[in-house]
Design a protein around this nucleic acid. Structure first.
Lengths: 226, 226
DNA sequence: TCAAAAGTGTTTCCCTTACACCCATGC
DNA sequence: GCATGGGTGTAAGGGAAACACTTTTGA
């Protein structure tokens, strides 16, 4: 293939879209912002943009993280490439989607000033721009599977959390209730939590033990699953 | 964003690469062909090509299947997008990789005439063109995980196969030996196989029972895993 | 002392694992 | 009748699921 023929193929756009999951007020939420230029002006969408030819995919995903929450030091994984010819109204754009798990309280450093942002509950999603909704469908499927197979739920919680917090997170995202005793047994057996004192709550009742995540045995589970 | 600015991003290439796995002579093999133009002229590579802006990703993957084995009616799944800036020597190309599982005896209809092709054993891979080797690393990881979690091994075998064939396939790909009785119990409990008579072998010894794959309960396992 | 939330053990069942011999067939 | 490969059962251990009460604390 000569240079000229090669160049003839270079008529496409590639974009990166980012799905940021957070967990707050007992609900799984998704970061969105309002689009302020056409197409889809005024619609809510996932953060995303076209990439320049000198930018790597992961690099752009991390930039989008910085723009969205001011922090790139969080869990980030490639989800899928979306390549339907008609998916972008202005031209042919192949999108590579990433998803990220963060704790809204602790991992959000700053929101971008130039856009209106909103955390939307995963079970009350409106119609979003482009094919964002099908990306989210897939991301939710993947998140549920990962949650079952890998110790990934911690990423959505603050550094210190109670086992009840963790269980609530699992129940909410998997959409079914879990037995408290069995849940605790299973989590404790993983041996990836460290006790760090009792929470000083205002509420009545016994004060719950706080745990923090201990990355010692963690990487093994992340690769193999359990 | 106006049209002009939008167009300024359209300087990238997108390619699709296809990894076709087959199983023959007790070995996992990968379809490759010899590149007959630059760059990488003379090197072995996975089938793949740049896409035009009017072609969908899945569509191109299926076309590559047709070109490679003359058959698109086989298992096909997206693997990953590879987007490092330097991965293609002639320019910026983002690659979306797919992998496919076929039976070499029954699913190969025809090979393309214009290229030299070769099935390479997965444990004797040479240096391939582009970043094909890292694609294969990832594909192998994924195949092993899928093999454990979903009843996918059948795709690599002929329509009728023996349980010993199936076990050999698992042992070879997972690279460990399995207990014959336990393996058979587990497979039979899935209840996705139908007996279809004994094989008429030439060899001494009892004639093995042939099974065929029964897709009744199959789709459930494919979504959920087991 | 009561209300509210945290925390804790046991039994049952089934799946997993380990393990060794008999069966059918061709020569 | 023997060599070759196909095929089978059982016991023990470990993880999963079901299930209800006690403990701590603040008001």
């Amino acid at each position: 293939m000569d240079r000229e023929e090669f160049d003839s193929y270079f008529k496409l756009g590639v974009s990166v879209t980012l799905i940021v999951f957070g967990f707050e007020e007992g609900k799984l939420k998704i970061f969105t912002n309002k689009i302020n230029r056409n197409p889809y002006k005024g619609a809510w969408s996932l953060p995303g943009r076209l990439i320049r030819s000198d930018e790597g995919l992961d690099e752009v995903a991390e930039e989008l993280l910085m723009e969205s929450i001011g922090n790139r030091d969080v869990y980030l994984e490639q989800l899928n490439a979306f390549g339907k010819v008609t998916r972008h109204p202005l031209g042919r754009v192949v999108d590579v989607t990433f998803y990220s798990l963060i704790n809204i309280q602790e991992d959000v450093v700053s929101y971008r000033a130039d856009k209106e942002i909103r955390w939307i509950e995963s079970d009350r999603l409106p119609e979003l721009a482009y094919d964002n909704n099908s990306m989210l469908d897939l991301a939710l499927q993947r998140l549920r599977r990962r949650l079952i197979n890998r110790p990934i739920g911690f990423k959505l919680l603050p550094k210190e959390f109670t086992l009840n917090d963790l269980q609530e997170l699992y129940e909410q995202i998997l959409n079914r209730s879990l037995d408290k005793r069995n849940f605790r047994k299973k989590v404790m057996k993983l041996d990836i939590l460290t006790e760090c004192g009792r929470e000083d709550t205002e509420s009545p009742g016994r004060k719950p033990m706080l745990y923090s995540f201990n990355p010692k045995r963690y990487s093994h589970y992340m690769e193999q699953g359990f």
